[in-house]
Design a protein around this nucleic acid. Structure first.
Lengths: 330, 330
DNA sequence: TATGGATTTGTAAACGTTTACAAAAGATGC
DNA sequence: GCATCTTTTGTAAACGTTTACAAATCCATA
């Protein structure tokens, strides 16, 4: 396979000149440029990124850490990241961590190894210490989930406020027995949403009941369904449920349907994320919409700025409550 | 940042010896190995993949081409690919093509550039000529969608047979007016599933009606919903629908619900792929299950074999009809 | 204590680029 | 035609590894 030396020879110039043509430098005479381009075509030459990357000590690869590929919440964010990355000639490596520190380590290793130029972490279960340590020497951005005061820049929404609005909405339409399906509260977003939930209750003089707050080990339909099973067995059965993820909410909805109860008449449900599916359920799901695409774009440009050594500021984006069938007349 | 020369100096040995320690070669004396490891720790040395990759002329990156990240059909396959890849120390780069030749070209370029060692293509809309051309010099595998007689090895299921079984099931439970929601028939899988559909009809003496076959531009809820809208307006309204994707089927189901018709009593629906969400709908969706994880694992090991220069054979995997609520009593 | 063979270590080239610097060529003015 | 300045081109080092080959060391044996 042809390399830059072959091209140089064929064109009768030096490798430096070929390189200059390749990189579009304009200190090359029209005539020689032509000769070089001819040689390139003749030899079917394709410059090797390996050589270039080594020389420039960059890989032009960005890592995206997510816990599960299958959670559609991330797909829109990823699209945003990708769009920005590609337009700036970076490629993205999607890394599923399964919230497993060992998997995580493989990916951290890639940036230490220079195989990747930076990381956008969206994994709530990320090892915060390792990440902070890595961030001392490498470009890291957190997206959606973040670590306060870690010095790692992030882009996210105001989770407490979002949860507050969701629960407030339930209260507005008359509910007072409102359960919450939360995920593991070691995650910051889970803590924040829980706080929003409590804040809304308190503001309306509703006593907080700890048995009304369920926790799931993971985000997934099944977990939501299991949680709803428990909720429906509670004495003083709640009339509304706020789930911190659409996946959980959809699983919960399924269980309500299974038990021949009506949504929203018997139980109202609010989700979180506004994933595509949330509009396909019966009834459609009231949920919190995050600007996922935008979040991805911002995360990517923050990261690339970081890589270039520019200073970057954390960003908090707007969210929106989308009222649909699961809390309203259908 | 420390490199292999620094380590060599620190340990008082040559770079060759350090390299040997790094690569676990056993021609190194215990004593010197210890010295080297000490130096490595002391300097916090991390070998650079860039240097290694250039020297070995490999990148250890595999490309996965899919049309849309958001289609959950692919996520399970990707998991399978990833699992195999990681265990063999490869990384995967997920490439969303949007079925856009330009996007595709960016990724093809990556393998020509040596930035990736091979490709698993799952994009039905891939440019078959470009791909075949690329496959002359590089390792390529097709997964799910393939190009017959192109010489590119593939792993897939028998789409015709699967569709045949799906439609056969509808006929068995008494339907004779069966519509089909197909995607673009330029794709092989769409042609094959259409053939299976027709075969089942023919075998039971049901006349094929071309107005019963709808086509969608893309796979997505909305497209399925639109198609179902048209179906419900047909004179001689079908009593059953076979959709070539769960996404389409779920969109279709949504429309039936919207129009206050009952599934399966008024309209029975069969989907394809058995995505997670197909079990969350109301009613649950009868569908064809593909061994997606396995498919991914096989595709990955085929590709890695190809990269190593070993010969590989195409594979056709088993599928299964999963009967659920949308065609049965609930 | 040589001798020879086996084992361990070192030297230097190679992978394919980019780029600082030097050299050559071309343009300008007198 | 020559000196000077500007533009274009070439030379060679550098990025960080691996590895063929050569050199050095070790060990057993006569």
């Amino acid at each position: 396979m042809a390399n830059i030396h072959h091209v140089a020879k064929e064109a009768g110039v030096s490798v430096a000149t070929v390189s200059r043509v390749l990189n579009g430098q304009n200190s090359v005479t029209y005539k020689t440029r032509l000769k070089v381009e001819e040689a390139i075509n003749k030899l079917n030459y394709e410059p090797s990124m390996l050589g270039r990357n080594l020389r420039n000590s960059e890989s032009r690869i960005l890592l995206i850490l997510i816990p599960q590929i299958s959670n559609p919440f991330y797909t829109e964010i990823i699209k945003g990241i990708e769009q920005t990355a590609i337009s700036l000639h970076y490629n993205i490596l999607l890394c599923e961590t399964d919230s497993n520190p060992q998997r995580e380590d493989i990916y951290f290793e890639l940036v230490r190894n220079k195989m990747a130029d930076g990381i956008i972490s969206m994994d709530p279960a990320v090892n915060r210490e390792s990440l902070a340590k890595l961030a001392e020497k490498h470009a890291i951005i957190q997206c959606s989930e973040y670590t306060p005061n870690s010095g790692i820049p992030y882009v996210t929404i105001d989770n407490e406020e979002a949860a507050y609005r969701a629960v407030n909405h339930l209260i507005q339409i008359g509910h007072r027995n409102i359960a919450m399906i939360n995920s593991d509260e070691t995650y910051l977003y889970a803590q924040q949403r829980r706080q929003g939930y409590q804040k809304a209750l308190e503001e309306h003089g509703i006593t907080f009941r700890s048995d009304y707050v369920l926790h799931t080990a993971e985000l997934g339909f099944d977990y939501g369904q299991q949680a709803m099973k428990k909720i429906l067995k509670l004495k003083n059965r709640p009339t509304a449920v706020f789930a911190v993820s659409d996946l959980l909410a959809i699983g919960a909805l399924k269980e309500v349907n299974n038990q021949r109860l009506k949504v929203p008449q018997d139980i109202a449900i609010v989700g979180f994320d506004k994933i595509d599916f949330s509009n396909m359920t019966y009834p459609t799901l009231t949920t919190i919409s995050q600007p996922m695409y935008k979040m991805g774009k911002i995360a990517a440009s923050m990261l690339i700025n970081r890589i270039k050594g520019n200073p970057v500021e954390s960003v908090i984006l707007e969210h929106e409550l989308v009222i649909r069938g699961s809390t309203a007349g259908y």
